[in-house]
Design a protein around this nucleic acid. Sequence first.
DNA 1: GCCAACGTTGGC
DNA 2: GCCAACGTTGGC
Length: 136
Amino acid sequence: MNYWLVKSEPDTYSWDFFESKKEDMWDGVRNYQARNNLMAMKKGDQVFFYHSNIGLEIVGLAEVAKEHYPDPTAKEGNWVVVNLKPIKKLNKSVSLKTIKTEYKLQDIALLKQSRLSVVPIKPDEYEHILFLANEN
DNA sequence: GCCAACGTTGGC
DNA sequence: GCCAACGTTGGC
């Protein structure tokens, strides 16, 4: 089991919209590192959903419903998508501000590679984020 | 709206 | 293969 975090601007694609879709294709990734992360995702992997630009917080938890396949929205290049499905909205959103002050989250890829839209999360980071979200 | 970080492109 | 120029992302 692996853990990930994906970013979305709520103006364009919010958690609530995602949740209303039950399951959706995560398309439009045009960055090689992000693509490699998509390709490494396995069915059942847990994925945090982060609101960038507006909100700046982790709002929900999703899981990989279908492993990578070619991105139908790509006109050229071998870009891929995965299908994600929402599991639940977090009891308490975990803000970027909080993450920055958490000792256990100082090395999180969200901070280290702030421009990457799909980043891996370590198991202990996953656990700690759930703890901060009042999920255990 | 600005700027830092970083990826991509293109000239050499 | 290097590097300057440029574009994009995302936080502030």
